[in-house]
Nucleic acid binder design. Sequence first.
RNA 1: UGGGGCGUCGUCAAGCGGUAAGACACAGGCCUUUGACGCCUGCAUUCGUAGGUUCGAAUCCUACCGCCCCAGCCA
Length: 554
Amino acid sequence: MSEHKDFIRDIIASDLAAGKNEGRVVTRFPPEPNGYLHIGHAKSICLNFGVAAENSGGVCHLRFDDTNPSKEEVEYAESIMEDVKWLGFAWGDKLFYASDYFERFYEYAEQLIKIELAYVCDLSADEIRQYRGTLTEPGRDSPYRSRSITENLDLFRRMRAGEFSEGSHVLRAKIDMASPNLNMRDPAIYRIKNSSHHRTGNKWCIYPMYDFAHCLSDAIEGITHSLCTLEFQDHRPLYNWFLEKLQTRHRPRQIEFSRLNLTYTVMSKRKLLQMVDEQLVDSWDDPRMLTISGLRRRGCPPGAIRAFCAMIGISKKDSRIDMGVLENCMREELNESAPRALGILRPLKLIIDNYPEQEEEELEAMNHPKKPEMGRRMVPFCRELYIEKSDFLAEAPRKFFRLTPGREVRLRFAYLITCTGLEKNEATGELEVHCTYDPASRGGTAPDGRKVKGTIHWVSARHGVRAQVRLYDRLFAVEDPESGVDDFKTHLNLNSLEVLNNCILEPSLGQATAGKHYQFERQGYFYTDPQDHKPGKPVFNRTVSLRDSWSRKK
RNA sequence: UGGGGCGUCGUCAAGCGGUAAGACACAGGCCUUUGACGCCUGCAUUCGUAGGUUCGAAUCCUACCGCCCCAGCCA
């Protein structure tokens, strides 16, 4: 559990100390089911569910903010529930839908009309915009602003009854057309929409706007602290206005914090949707996407996302967090939990000239260098192996601790070998590295105790299994794809996906099941693709590479 | 030029009048059968700028500068 203190937790603690809300702490995570959740939502989920969990008796509701049927779908609602669960949070029986309150919202709206604080306006959308004024000029009252209560009630009821066409009428709050806060210039609170709703079907043809529905939903559920992002700061006066005028029993307190931004990616649902629609990525769960489902498919453990959210904190400052922070959280968790294995991404044949042609043996390997309880396994060894292309250099600098003619290295868990040269196989045209091994060094240490700095990984050519490995990189080539005048898509990293089809893995991985994490030693963390991987037909996604101070130095 | 916010290390972020936490990144070193992991060391005389109050200011006051959000019948 995060022990992090931030200004929101401070406020909640002091509200509690002041005896507010009868000591209750009730938060809510209120997604609109119009897209998939991304890591920005995870920040909010961790905050809301986290705050509830940290306070005894605290509760966090999951509430779908489904007031705009033209954008919402059950598919999205289902994915959202799956994602929240996967992240490790439980809402128990506190699952709500704003649409379940439609009748109550309607009653509240009539009440507002009866106290002369709402009116039906016949202006068109365009006219309303013109009447609203600008940032520096006040707006003008709508000619329909002074309709009588009876007339408003009649009109509003006929709106509900479906007597009017979309756009012809709207119910507005009567506040102040001269307010410096544009949200207070008689905002629309109900509009006519002839679309069928994913939960209420065709029961309604008028739907409440966010500003009206959200505060009331919070009040109905007895939310104590309504946490949202910075862009809603200007809506807070409106939020409070509705609750005060309607004299609701509960008066939740809205508190805003800054959204999450990460380098080399975009975060808005709109842009993610665009990437999916324009097939710049495969789908919402493309492992390159920072959607929860994309991260999951990539192999990011939920705990890494929680650790990340705890690490970045909560504040009101606009920020853009380095993608490296997220990657590091993945490494940190996977380092603890992922069993090790040997796998060659870009194979290069290695022939041990003094190893008998027909001989084979099994060598013991640890599944985790620091956790003996994770066990050991046997890996087959023979005369011909595959090693990583990048582990051989015909002409190497002094600091290159890998294979190069004349130099000795260790084959992980196996033997010390000395490279004798590189040759081209006349028959196959394949490049082959040749070496000799020291039979006395079985296991990887020489009896004479000589030091060998380099250790490389390998897979038996005779026993290894072929696999597809997908390497993912950041989706965008620049830190902030949204800055500047260009369309964000012009900054796409064209090499964000590399598919390797000739990878050779140690045989034990051939039978791995889908949805399993491994560390391929010296390379990174890999995850058997939940959809495409089958035992016998392995497909691995690279979740994140290992840190590599060697390549960074170069 | 209206209103609402925000400005502390490269990036996040503590600090709430008593003399700049921590994390990530970065740089060295140690360890090492993963150039991984781990461990150690270093890394803001300074808190957007300029004044002021005070024995004392990142914290209080004033002015200025910069960045973000708002003119949906989206959320």
